[in-house]
Simulated assay, not measured.
Amino acid sequence: MSNATIIERIKATWHDFSLGKLTLLAFIDDYRRNVVALEGLPYPLIVEARRIADVLEVSAWAVEEDCVVDTLPALASLTAWVSSVQKLEVLNSRS
């Protein structure tokens, strides 16, 4: 499976989460599996992906404890990460 396909899967599950079709924990689990499947990512992007998943997971635990949590910063980081990976894919496809 190509990296582009995997990124589309991440975006699709994120969309399902935003519509309430997936729990945050289900999205995080899927996200982690898809990140591992990506090939040729620079190490800093892998570290960032793990950090985002960890922050979202802590948020999910807080929600389970009935705490008010702002997931917007983590989701903004996820948006930026997806954009970075897509740009990398474009650059790699031109090589």
Rank of each mutant, 00 (worst) to 15 (best):
A4D: 08
L25W: 15
H15K: 12
I7C: 08
L91K: 09
A74F: 00
I6M: 02
E8W: 13
P44H: 02
A12E: 07
V36L: 05
A60D: 02
P73F: 04
L41A: 01
A76D: 03
V82Y: 03
L41E: 03
Y43H: 13
M1G: 14
L24R: 01
E48I: 00
R32L: 02
W14E: 12
P44N: 04
E57I: 02
R9G: 05
R94H: 08
L22T: 13
D54Y: 11
T5H: 15
R9K: 15
R51W: 11
H15I: 06
D66S: 13
L19Y: 15
A62N: 01
M1I: 00
D16F: 12
S59K: 14
Y31P: 05
A4T: 06
G40R: 01
A12H: 14
M1R: 10
R94S: 14
N34C: 14
D16P: 07
D30I: 12
L75D: 14
R94E: 13
S84C: 10
L24I: 00
L19R: 09
R33A: 12
R94I: 14
M1C: 09
A60S: 01
L75A: 09
W14N: 14
R50V: 14
V63K: 12
L91E: 13
N34T: 10
E57Q: 11
V47P: 12
R33I: 12
K87N: 11
I46P: 10
A4F: 10
L56D: 08
D30C: 08
F27W: 04
I10Y: 02
K11M: 05
M1D: 10
D16Y: 12
R51Q: 12
S84I: 06
V68F: 11
R51D: 05
A74E: 04
A74D: 00
S93G: 05
E8I: 10
V82S: 04
D70E: 02
N34D: 08
V85M: 05
E39A: 15
A76V: 12
I6L: 07
D70C: 00
S93V: 07
S95K: 15
K11Y: 03
R50K: 11
L72T: 11
T5E: 11
N3Q: 06
L22N: 00
V63R: 10
A49G: 07
D66A: 09
K87H: 13
T71L: 11
V63T: 12
L41I: 03
S18Y: 12
S95V: 05
V36I: 10
S59L: 02
R32D: 07
L88T: 00
A26L: 09
L22W: 04
E65I: 13
A49S: 08
V35N: 08
V69C: 03
L41T: 05
L75S: 08
A26E: 05
I6N: 05
A26N: 15
V47F: 15
L91Y: 06
L25Y: 10
T71H: 11
D66R: 10
Y31W: 01
L78E: 05
D70T: 06
K87S: 13
V68P: 02
S84F: 08
P44Q: 01
E57C: 10
C67Y: 15
T13W: 06
I7V: 02
F27G: 04
G40L: 01
T71K: 06
A26H: 07
P44L: 05
V35R: 03
D70I: 00
A53C: 04
L19D: 10
L45T: 05
A80E: 09
L78K: 04
L75Q: 05
V82G: 08
C67S: 09
V69S: 02
I7A: 13
